Simulated assay, not measured.
Amino acid sequence: MDAKLKVLILGTGFAGQGHADAFRSAGAEVVGIVGRTPSVLNDVAEKMAIPYASTDWQAALQACRPDIVSIATPGGAHYDAIKQAIEFGCHVFSDKPLTDSGETSAELYQMAMQKKVKTAFAASFRYMAHILHAKQLVASGAIGEPVEVECISHFNLERDIPFGWSHRKEEGGGRLNNNFTHMISIVTSVVGEKILSIMGEVRDDLGRAPIVEGVHNFKTRRDFIPKDLNDPALKWGESNVEWSYTVLAQLESPFAKKPVSALFKHGGLTPNFDDNHIVFHGTKGAIYIKGHYGMGPLFYWGDSKTWEELPIPKDIVDDLPDISGDTERNWHYLARQFVKDISGEPYTPYPSFKEGSQYQQLIDLIRNNNNWTDVSHLQ
């Protein structure tokens, strides 16, 4: 295609600006941006040289007539905007979660299929270099048949981060929406995309958070933690969503005869004693990756019966966007594949609303917390 694809961005914060950079890097033209707060919106549009800025999403669709819309707001604001974009005939790139419920996510997926528009879902930490390396190793048979995956992370987040969307289920908050979506995407990308069964437990161990005005960027929210948390004038908002979870899943793998077991253990507020990590165990070896999202380094256990650090292969290094931030680099990688697909060029398969819808339905099941067996009567 000779003409550049036109992109309209919804959201002015860290994600909105990151999506805009990613699509520009992929060769698309960012023609407009929509935000909620006029002063912030105008500042971002001017800073990023985006020609059109509006607080009205429907008007922006009409004025910009984009080929692609990029949804970069908290998940609770996704449904109406995505629905309108699909009805308008736009391809849609959405950050996670797709919506705040499995039902509405499934509806959007079906709408996109019916309208024949392409979709991308930014559970994009599957594009970390060491995750791509693990995918190569597993596919090559380096660990034999995969049998078990372990994902352990404790974030020790500040309990007094100002109250906002991350504290509310209806706004797309919770650790399942904002951590598990990445983790399940990472594991399925390496082992196999088909999820056979799942169970889990969630816990809200936060309770409340201080209400503070002026927080517009998710990345800088820590800067707004009140200095005096005992101030009687301070107002508080109630959390209604999980800050910790434990999930067990069984995955079908093209590399194994039996289902692969996967454990996902995450504590949003609890400190880690040892490294956060991801481990892939097989019948003949194992892969250990330090970091909650596979930041690395990667270690391999094979015939030597010792853990050996492996460098990232050159083909993976050469294919990664030259971007310093992990989140931003992964957006660039996904946007590049999405633009290639829409343009009719060869591309690597990427997560779509199919995965976004499935993950949200899984999250609804996990949040039910109905997997417990009462054994209190046993002697």
Score class of each variant (00 low, 15 high):
Glu213Ile: 02
Gly214Asp: 05
Gly214Asn: 06
Val215Ile: 15
Val215Asp: 09
His216Ala: 02
Asn217Leu: 13
Asn217Ala: 09
Phe218Thr: 15
Lys219Met: 05
Lys219Asp: 05
Arg221Pro: 01
Arg221His: 01
Arg221Lys: 12
Arg222Asp: 10
Asp223Lys: 12
Phe224Lys: 12
Phe224Thr: 03
Phe224Gln: 04
Phe224Cys: 07
Pro226Arg: 05
Pro226Ala: 06
Lys227Tyr: 01
Asp228Ile: 07
Asp228Gly: 02
Asn230Tyr: 10
Asn230Leu: 13
Asn230Thr: 14
Asp231Ile: 08
Ala233Phe: 05
Ala233Ile: 03
Ala233Ser: 15
Leu234Lys: 09
Lys235Gly: 00
Trp236Gly: 06
Trp236Arg: 05
Gly237Thr: 10
Glu238Val: 14
Ser239Asp: 08
Asn240Met: 15
Asn240Trp: 14
Asn240Thr: 14
Asn240Phe: 13
Val241Ala: 04
Glu242Asp: 06
Glu242His: 00
Glu242Cys: 03
Trp243Glu: 11
Ser244Tyr: 00
Ser244Asn: 00
Tyr245Glu: 02
Tyr245Ser: 03
Thr246Lys: 06
Thr246Leu: 11
Leu248Met: 13
Gln250Ser: 12
Gln250Thr: 14
Pro254Asn: 11
Pro254Thr: 07
Phe255Met: 04
Phe255Ser: 06
Phe255Trp: 11
Ala256Gly: 11
Ala256Val: 13
Ala256Cys: 13
Lys258Ile: 01
Pro259His: 00
Val260Ile: 12
Val260Glu: 04
Val260Ala: 04
Val260Phe: 02
Ser261Asn: 09
Ala262Val: 15
Ala262Glu: 06
Ala262Gln: 11
Ala262Thr: 11
Phe264Asp: 02
Phe264Leu: 07
Phe264Trp: 05
His266Glu: 10
His266Leu: 14
Gly267Cys: 05
Gly268Tyr: 02
Gly268Gln: 08
Gly268Asn: 04
Leu269Gly: 00
Thr270Asp: 04
Pro271Thr: 06
Pro271Leu: 09
Pro271Arg: 09
Phe273His: 07
Phe273Glu: 12
Phe273Thr: 12
Asp275Thr: 01
